[in-house]
Amino acid sequence: MNPVNYLYLAALLFTIGAAGVLIRRNAIVVFMCVELMLNACNLAFVTFARMHGNLDGQIIAFFTMVVAAAEVVIGLAIILTIFRSRHSASVDDASLLKL
């Protein structure tokens, strides 16, 4: 199978994720969309590794997973804390940090 198809899939997934981040208000959904984007990137990296015949892309994919895991831990903790204090998981409600 032509590896380029995987790249199309990755682009599609990334676009869905990006649109979700921009459109959805629920922090959990936004968060999941971010994960979708990260994994789309992973898919692209792995595909490139396959196409170029070396392991660089695969190694970077591992790094991305580690970073994503750390991000999930911290991100969920923040969302949980915000929900506890404001009783809402909407990203638009938490808009106090401005001039």
Partner: peptide, 17 residues
């Protein structure tokens, strides 16, 4: 310029994208 700083995370995300 500071009007751009509106506190909405999604609007920041738009500028990033």
């Amino acid at each position: 310029l500071r009007r751009l700083q509106n506190g909405f995370a999604r609007s920041y995300a738009v500028s990033m994208f």
